[in-house]
Design a protein around this nucleic acid. Sequence first.
DNA 1: TAGATTGTTAATCGATTAACAATC
DNA 2: TAGATTGTTAATCGATTAACAATC
Lengths: 210, 210
Amino acid sequence: MKREKVSSAVIRRLPRYYRHLTDLTLAGVVRISSNTLGKAMNLTASQIRQDLSCFGEFGQQGYGYNVESLRNAVSEILGMDQKHTAIILGVGNLGRALMENFHFSHSGFVLTAAFDVNPSLVGKSLAGVPVYSVEHLNSYLQSTPTSVGVLTVPRTAAAPMADRLVAGGVRGIWNFTNAELNVHKSGVVVENVHFADSLLALSYMISEAP
Amino acid sequence: MKREKVSSAVIRRLPRYYRHLTDLTLAGVVRISSNTLGKAMNLTASQIRQDLSCFGEFGQQGYGYNVESLRNAVSEILGMDQKHTAIILGVGNLGRALMENFHFSHSGFVLTAAFDVNPSLVGKSLAGVPVYSVEHLNSYLQSTPTSVGVLTVPRTAAAPMADRLVAGGVRGIWNFTNAELNVHKSGVVVENVHFADSLLALSYMISEAP
DNA sequence: TAGATTGTTAATCGATTAACAATC
DNA sequence: TAGATTGTTAATCGATTAACAATC
């Protein structure tokens, strides 16, 4: 499967394709044309065919795409079959919300552990995932190669924690803190979930021009 | 202040400007040039000047921008002074995390109430915000004009809840469920926070090409 | 076969970058 | 004043859309 020079715009659409194809599968739809999918997703048929052509040929002239096999292809493109692992740093409300409500497995991840400084949490298990003391993070990472660290610690703890994750060899950081992380190690990716940025964009869109 | 045809790329950068300008203010920086700000934010100086020119003239030749007054200008552009109000729908882990850890006021919002179906939560108060029964949502919206509904209900409850919010006159929905909302009423905006999309994009970026 | 729809090449559109006169 | 830096216009780059031959 080819994969050169995929723009960030395309990368951001891939999860949406996956989500829509999943819904279609659940709805029992067997085949779909780029035209129909485009209408459902508010994209042009051209754009969908152009996007997919970054990765290969998945359709058939005169027929369109088989929903299930296209979904499988997108899943593979996204790396969902690569058995990525994740750990949670910080078991506050947000960390707990992710552990108990977010299905990491639906995105191809296995959540293997959580870490916190609070002694009353350490040793417990939430949603089947053990909570360890942050003291043991370094040794844990050494013994257990981990793909992604999920940063749900307080803002002040974010930067040093990110450094420890990078030193421990993670490949990505899923950053829920509003700290701007500067990760220098090449090959390590930071994906930010900035709640405030999102709410401010919404604020702009609902506001009257001053 | 002019405001015609502002592209979504620009809108998405506005909160980042605000965040960086806030950091600079806290660090005691008084003035900054588009060049220096660009380096800090990984943008070109041209782009910053072009972006700001959508809304007016905020700098001074030979000097640059006054950090505090530019921050105030961006704040106003984002509508942070418009006394927007928000309510939370669904006080599960995520709703609670937002109530207790997210500072709505830092984005110019006042969180006025939360709603849940769970009788053991109704009547309580979290972080100073009262939790009401969802039964009272409609009458609440009628008596208390509300800018934004924050959707942290289970996926299955998302669509009907969105309908009630729109009927109740909210101007925006901050959607944390993975449901794809179809809001038809013009002037009502949906801002999605799709955790899974974000994690899948990260998955793509850390994955080996198949 | 005829109709439908792909993958790809070419055309268009929009966003980013560069250049520069204006001026603090 | 001379140096710095803006706001804006023009040039470039990249992404989206349109067109169409290939073919199921």
